[in-house]
């Protein structure tokens, strides 16, 4: 283990990281957001999921520095009397969870398809890539809207509200696999022609072993780069769906549903309900994208082009 530790300490990645202020700042902010969102139950002054802590009399209070502000609610409250700051923390947790798991699902699907298409080639390749083309010709949002709306209509919003988080992960995960499949396929096609693949074929290893153990690790850098960008994309998709009312339910709001719930009151002066979650969302997506850009520059996968 200590060998790997020294390898990491000497790695070019760490060296480049230490010399890049934007990367350090982005990484620190992301880490901070991750910590405060996943530690939300300990940090947040209120639990927005607990109806006993919510008082309708506290509704629509402005942030503390405004004239009507209440010292208990730093960033004000929403229409139901929930503390915006606490709800944002919980909401960030949901957004990040959905983003990570959706990308995990995308990558599993996409890597498997991309590897198979690239390595076996021929008809399988044509079939999978045409499938990817078809999938990409529907926008993620369109697919998600149709699937989620049908699900809501078919099984009722009660069940939907319970399963919303899984549904979102599933829909965003399935809708975006072609990004991975294409990137992985392109790398596999390049790797497959290299001599070490001939060498392991000569050694007599099985195809599956060659694919997963030898080719896959060599395609990791483009996968890493699109993964960061895709997390940001997934968070955005989730926010967009929630904003359209097809995402997380109001009693379990993500950043997107918070923005949505405040949007209806923005013209009546309650600007804080929408503004603060929106700023947090922008910050979150921005730092992930900046990190992704930095990673791409460092790893320089020539294949990452859309």
């Amino acid at each position: 283990m200590s060998r790997y530790r020294t390898l990491f300490r000497q790695s070019a990645l760490l060296y480049r990281f230490r010399r890049d202020k934007v990367a350090i700042a982005s990484f620190s902010i992301l880490l901070l957001l991750l910590i405060i969102s996943f530690a939300a139950p300990f940090i947040a002054p209120f639990n927005p999921y607990d109806p006993t802590q919510i008082d309708i009399m506290d509704s629509n209070l402005p942030p503390v520095w405004q004239t009507d502000g209440d010292a208990r609610f730093t960033l004000g409250t929403d229409t139901q009397g929930r503390d915006i700051w606490s709800t944002m923390l919980y909401g960030t947790r949901i957004s990040i969870t959905i983003g990570l798991f959706a990308v995990l699902l995308q990558s599993l699907l996409g890597i498997a398809m991309g590897l198979a298409a690239g390595y076996y080639g021929g008809r399988l390749d044509s079939f999978l890539m045409r499938l990817a083309d078809i999938q990409l010709s529907f926008s993620t949002l369109m697919v998600a809207i149709v699937v989620l709306a049908v699900f809501q209509a078919a099984f009722g919003s009660e069940l939907y509200n319970e399963l919303a988080i899984f549904m979102l992960i599933l829909v965003i995960g399935i809708a975006e696999w072609p990004q991975y499949a294409r990137t992985v396929r392109a790398s596999v096609l390049a790797e497959k022609k290299k001599e070490y693949v001939d060498a392991v074929r000569v050694i007599g290893l099985s195809r599956r072993r060659i694919m997963f153990r030898h080719i896959l690790p060599n395609t990791l850098s483009p996968i890493l780069v699109i993964s960061t960008v895709q997390v940001a994309n997934a968070i955005m998709s989730e926010a967009a769906l929630s904003f359209l009312g097809l995402g997380m339910p109001v009693n379990q709001p993500s950043l997107g549903s918070l923005i949505n719930s405040g949007f209806q009151y923005i013209l009546s002066g309650s600007w804080w309900i929408t503004t603060f979650p929106a700023l947090l969302l922008i910050l979150l997506v921005l730092v992930i994208n900046l990190l992704g850009d930095w990673l791409r520059d460092v790893l320089n996968p020539k294949l990452y082009k859309e």
Binding site: E195, Y196, A199, R213, H214, P217, N218
Partner: peptide, 8 residues
């Protein structure tokens, strides 16, 4: 240079 897998 080419016959050994660079990542293992």
């Amino acid at each position: 240079m080419m016959t050994l897998n660079p990542v293992l």
